[in-house]
Design a protein around this nucleic acid. Structure first.
Lengths: 220, 220
DNA sequence: GGAGAACCGTAACGTACGGTACGGATTTTT
DNA sequence: AAAAATCCGTACCGTACGTTACGGTTCTCC
């Protein structure tokens, strides 16, 4: 190979990224049994290298969370050409994407890990998860909501409050149930239907007369 | 004492209940450091007794979750004399009660524990939490919603769907943020306002013309 | 091609903790 | 009051796992 410079996301060599992927795979597959020996065996590397690269176990896990977070960056939602239909479509796409993310095995495993660590001594994994999950999507969607308000399609005083209502309508009890191990199956067509339902409910609450056009019944 | 018969919830002696309270206190205070030695020291009992009473560590934790669940039973919401105002009031009281529960330190610690355990091998704590939390309140609130529909105050096809929307509007992202360690402060007046807002939003989505009376603006 | 670094595989060490055993004190029973 | 049962406190055992150390191999760079 032609000596690929580590132009990677976070100063990580390809080898190290492979290790972090192995950690993720272990988390997803068999739960919390992420022991250093298991990681070394799974990634075919020595434990010595693990400690050299990541310091200690906590450093390895933190790097794993960061690594996963660094590639969740989904596409932005453009707010050009904003009419009622485009707004509704943007919201539906956003909702469907978020639902698929929070119901993915990786997200579930990672959140479980961060939550477990948050209960013990000062763990910053929870903060990392929130910054790259909940708050990151807020910063991406709130401009859309603001644009919708400026275009006269939405009406609200506080963008954050409106955004949180949207989150609630979309997510409902899905995440907590999945985290607690409920066998709630989340399949693609269901996600699409739920995303559309939640969006229409949101528009019913925060939309103006201009948005009533493309909206379906909410009490279906 | 006059030999109080163990009329307690689950055939537990007062001594054993004190032990379980010690476990809860440990969970809340310093997180996941619930070691058998720590429990024995905190409860001033011997480890031998712990194993005699609860079998093993898992039995102790399961008993703790059951013990806490057994006294969460909040009052039922009567559906006599159901008009628009009474329905709205019932929903607000329900929402406020649920918000205060999920934001309590005990609930947070217990859910964290159950989630951490759900990631490992067959853990039934998550199922217990769901049965006594999410599903128990569903069985208590859905009759209210059904009564509201029969009284012509609400309109929906599926009670479960309506209930889940209500849960989403009330809870939004509160629980996941608290579980991840976000310093989201949830104080009493805030809870009351959020409960009223969520209820009015729910009524805007699922109410009929008969409920429009006592409702406030939702886009505040 | 050879010196040196990086790395893999494995062995070894120390600690933490779940689980067990035992002596002595307290309570209960007869 | 004697006998039995329960229980507390502590010491002990075995294992699992985080961490370190080391021999052998591969890769890098002159």
């Amino acid at each position: 190979m032609a000596t690929p410079p580590d132009q990677s996301g976070d100063e990580l060599t390809a080898r190290q990224q492979a290790v972090l992927d192995a950690v993720l795979a272990l988390m997803v597959e068999q739960g919390g049994d992420v022991t250093m020996t298991a990681v070394a065996r799974r990634a075919s590397c020595s434990k010595e290298s693990l400690y050299k690269w990541f310091g200690d176990r906590d450093g390895l896990l933190t790097a794993t969370v960061r690594w996963q977070a660094s590639r969740v960056r989904a596409g932005n939602y453009d707010r050009t050409r904003l009419d009622a239909l485009a707004l509704r479509d943007s919201l539906i796409r956003f909702a469907a994407n978020w639902l698929s993310v929070i119901s993915s095995p990786t997200s579930i495993a990672l959140n479980r890990f961060a939550i477990a660590q948050a209960s013990a001594r000062g763990g910053n994994l929870g903060a990392i998860m929130l910054a790259n999950g909940r708050f990151a999507i807020g910063e991406r969607l709130k401009p859309v909501l603001d644009a919708g308000r400026e275009a006269g399609l939405l009406a609200f005083d506080d963008t954050e409050t409106a955004f949180r209502s949207f989150l609630g309508l979309v997510g409902r009890d899905v995440q907590i149930r999945l985290l607690l191990g409920d066998a709630l199956e989340v399949v693609a067509p269901e996600i699409e239907r739920d995303a559309a339902r939640a969006t229409d409910q949101f528009l019913a609450l925060y939309g103006t007369a201009a948005t009533a056009a493309g909206r379906n019944q909410t009490n279906a």
